[in-house]
Design a protein around this nucleic acid. Structure first.
Lengths: 289, 289
DNA sequence: CTTATTCTGTAATTTTTGATACAGTATTTC
DNA sequence: GAAATACTGTATCAAAAATTACAGAATAAG
């Protein structure tokens, strides 16, 4: 066993910092390993032990001793840590190097806004254009019947979508409230129907069951979910995942709203010729009542 | 052998872009793999085949078929490519500038995301910290009764807020559906009650009437609205305006959602001592049913 | 200068990982 | 509705990787 113990890798400071601070205690070959890693941090550590050894001009066992010295249980453990750092750094360029400022409520609001804005950007980037396009097309076909549904928290977005699409086009409803009531309507759902389901963790059994039934009866299922994908993805024709992370105990649904509003906007534009007179007629009716 | 060949991985466009453009030609399981990779790009691909497969909910061979379809000779080859992209991207922060989207709809989605992100930022900046603070405090008092309500489009956010606050604390409900049904409940609303109203253009008569009545009976009214302020502002104790502009015929409600979620997060933190056991109890009840 | 100790690479070993053959299932096509 | 085709998971195999044992080299101490 080594005479010097490595510190546990769970230290708060970045691994690179820790290496820089302790590099003088390393043996000559370990220093070579450390310099390689620091000069190409952290990419040099992403490959195999053999590749790292060759690049540093040392032997494979020396690399192993190096990572052990750093406090890792083995090379895979070491790599796992690098992956984690990399992901944290690249995904939240803002949240990273910020040593817990005062948790003022005003600061909370603005950091919330920042985090959600980041979500929106990554949500938009992760969506396949063809997928979004296909969904927009489905929702633009007046002959199809649209049914929106969601779980405990996401039912609100089904409602939100419905309240807009209802104005744009005919044959729009929401499957909401008592799941028992859905059953009755399910009988009418078939090939021409489109079910748009919102479902994020924890995925809800009754929504899943509804979509499976709908799919079995030939309906087209569209799923709007989180990046971990609801089980509904199995039966869904199209899936639109949205990022949901937020500085809170709860997930943020802003990504779901983004996709919903973007779909509404796209369909509005596409159906404008028929939607405009329809909207005007609805306005007149509202004013009369 | 597969009937469709993957393109060589040396294409100039990023791998993510290529996947987004060709995802429609994938098999269902390949789509699952693609969605995982896109939603956690490229980190999901940095581990082992088995880890990727488990995370995507598919089998290891399917992952191998996926990378083969993408044109790589094997999983290590695929990872090598990801490492390369990652290094290039992180080393040149400038190169991160988006490579000009192709299709119209993709552009629509990303410009939508940008516009909404801007909304969020300006919404957060325009909120008076003391106002937000005061609202959070009101919603954190367990003795008060909370009622959420909204108009045609905004009722969804009242529902969304209610579904969360209901879990955090007692005495939470939503005034929804038939306005006639509100009347019956109005009789019980008094000094200890808090009415949170969502209202944006075009401001809705029945919601306005509800808030005026509530105010007259001594309730505290909180208004979440657009920058032009609903008439409810006259009777509201606190007003939180949100920016709503969007590249669409419709307004965007993302600002409303931001305020809602930020309030939920703040109240959750503040009530954590009592909310945690409450949430656990609710979880247990759910599991039993 | 000799001896003890630490350091480092070669080579063997074991574990893990990626890859493949094949059979069952679902799906599509006629 | 039946046959053909495509799709996907289980079980198995082969390959590569990480790890360890050990001996030689370098360094430091006496």
């Amino acid at each position: 066993m080594s005479t010097r113990m490595g510190k546990p890798p769970s230290e708060s400071a970045s691994l690179a910092d820790r290496i820089r601070n302790t590099i003088q205690t390393f043996t000559p070959t370990e220093k070579r390993a450390a310099r390689l890693l620091l000069s190409h941090y952290p990419f040099a550590g992403l490959g195999t032990v053999a590749a790292f050894a060759a690049r540093a001009g040392i032997s494979a066992p020396s690399v192993l001793r190096f990572v052990t010295r750093l406090g890792f249980s083995g090379f895979p453990d070491f790599q796992k840590h690098l992956h984690g750092e990399l992901e944290a750094q690249l995904l939240s360029p803002l949240a990273k190097a910020r040593p817990a400022e005062r948790t003022d409520t005003a600061a909370a609001l603005s950091s919330f806004a920042k985090a959600i804005a980041t979500n929106l950007r990554s949500t938009a980037e992760a969506i396949a254009p063809a997928e979004f396009e296909a969904v927009a097309t489905l929702l633009s076909e007046p002959a199809r019947h649209l049914h929106f549904t969601g779980g405990r928290f996401t039912a609100a977005f089904a409602r939100y979508a419905e309240s807009h699409f209802r104005i744009l086009r005919p044959h729009v409803d929401v499957l909401d409230g008592q799941p028992a009531l859905w059953r009755d309507r399910m009988i009418e759902i078939g090939r021409r129907d489109v079910v748009v389901a919102y479902d994020i963790r924890r995925y809800q059994e009754d929504v899943i069951a509804l979509c499976e039934t709908a799919s079995r009866q030939g309906a087209t299922v569209i799923l709007i979910t989180d990046p971990w994908l609801s089980p509904i993805a199995r039966v869904a024709r199209h899936v639109l995942p949205a990022h949901v992370s937020a500085p809170s105990n709860w997930d943020s649904a802003a990504g779901l709203l983004l996709l919903t509003e973007a779909l509404i906007a796209t369909v509005t534009k596409r159906l404008w010729a028929s939607a405009k007179p329809r909207m005007e007629a609805i306005e007149r009716l509202r004013d009369e009542v």
